[in-house]
């Protein structure tokens, strides 16, 4: 296997002042190969957005990033200054955000904002080149009458169209890695499916690596090669999509999967399955398993010490002392 495109080693993100500090990301490591999709799944506040911003070097002012290394194509980027990092943003790695309605600047045309991304990294390029590239990519992302669209302002486009524009913008300089932070959460379900299919197609065509951040397991199932389930700032289970969906080992992953209503199977009007309790506060030092309070399989021992990752094979891991192992195969059959 070739070297991974993106490699993150023991990433920590801390937010806020020393006395009331939130330890939002607590030592996560992952790799994404060229052309591969890694999906980080988790509920609100688990640190998944912070992870994506940390990789981009776009953390808010109050947040601090620490790691044993973040590298792209084998080159370390975690020590770069913001100026040096800005030379890579858009060129090597690009990002698509959750809110297409506010992610575009309202006072400039679509064309202006697309071309600007291109010219930033191709200063010598002629004006026409940037425009041609913008038209080409707008057509690629399925926007008709692309050259007329260039003169339109964001408020003249629908949410789905704006997200397509955002995707085209991310592709302007032909990046290797796209970080998509909840790219379809703000869109209608029908549009969601279109956008996801589009991302898949573009991935194949341009051999993109995608880091997909989402809370929606349905999206993960449709798009991801590898999955990392994140809980309280840590990965609690990782593996290929098949492994995680078919044989979830961690009770939290199992809870998430059980919470998806299935047409025909979930009882009409019945109570939807839910995981009781809430995510622990990340301001304090966590003793024991972070899922302890909400776990149905917990034993008193789970509240002690730090639960280490169990990694039976490369890439397949869980952070649990009482994982579902024997029943996994059986249960998996029912879920797939």
């Amino acid at each position: 296997m070739t070297a991974p495109l993106l490699k993150v080693d023991d990433l920590h993100v801390r937010i806020g002042a020393r006395d009331r500090q939130v330890h939002a990301v607590r030592g996560i490591s992952f790799e994404i190969a060229r052309g591969e999709t890694l999906s980080i799944v988790g509920e609100s506040g688990c640190g998944k957005s912070m992870t994506s911003l940390a990789v981009m070097g776009l953390l808010p002012r109050t947040a601090r990033r620490e790691s044993h290394g973040i590298s792209i194509d084998g080159a370390r980027i975690d020590g770069l200054s913001d100026r040096a990092m800005s030379d890579l943003r858009g060129l090597k790695l690009a990002m698509i955000f959750q809110e297409p309605m506010t992610a575009l600047n309202p006072v400039y045309t679509i064309g202006n904002q697309l071309e600007e991304a291109y010219r930033r990294h191709n200063p010598a390029a002629a004006r026409g080149d940037a425009r041609a590239r913008a038209v080409y990519l707008l057509e690629k992302v399925g926007i008709t009458a692309a050259s007329e669209r260039l003169n339109q302002y964001p408020h003249q486009l629908s949410g789905g169209l704006r997200q397509r524009v955002m995707i085209a913008m991310a592709l302007m300089c032909g990046p290797d890695l796209i970080i998509a932070d909840e790219p379809t959460t703000a869109l209608d379900v029908t549009i969601q499916a279109q956008i996801l299919r589009l991302l898949r197609d573009l991935q194949t065509e341009f051999n993109l690596s995608i880091l997909l951040i989402t809370h929606d397991l349905g999206i993960v199932a449709r798009t991801a090669d590898k999955v990392a389930v994140m809980y309280a700032g840590e990965f609690v289970e990782t593996g290929t999509a098949r492994e995680v969906f078919n044989a979830p080992a961690h009770p939290y992953t199992r809870g998430l999967l059980a919470a998806i209503p299935v047409p025909g199977k979930t009882e009409r009007g019945g109570k939807l399955a839910a995981i009781p309790g809430t995510v622990p506060s990340l301001t304090d030092h966590l003793e024991g398993c972070s899922f302890f309070g909400r776990c149905s399989r917990a034993v008193p021992d789970c509240a002690l010490g730090h639960v280490a990752l169990t990694e039976p094979s490369a890439g397949r891991a869980w952070r649990c002392r009482r994982p579902y192992l024997e029943e996994a195969a059986h249960q998996g059959g029912a879920l797939s």
Partner: peptide, 21 residues
């Protein structure tokens, strides 16, 4: 605003972001 973050994600430099966006 979100569009400032977008501008930064494109790799634009701080002075451009400030003055233009």
């Amino acid at each position: 605003a979100d569009y400032i973050r977008t501008a930064r994600a494109k790799g634009l430099r701080t002075p451009t972001i400030l003055v233009k966006h």
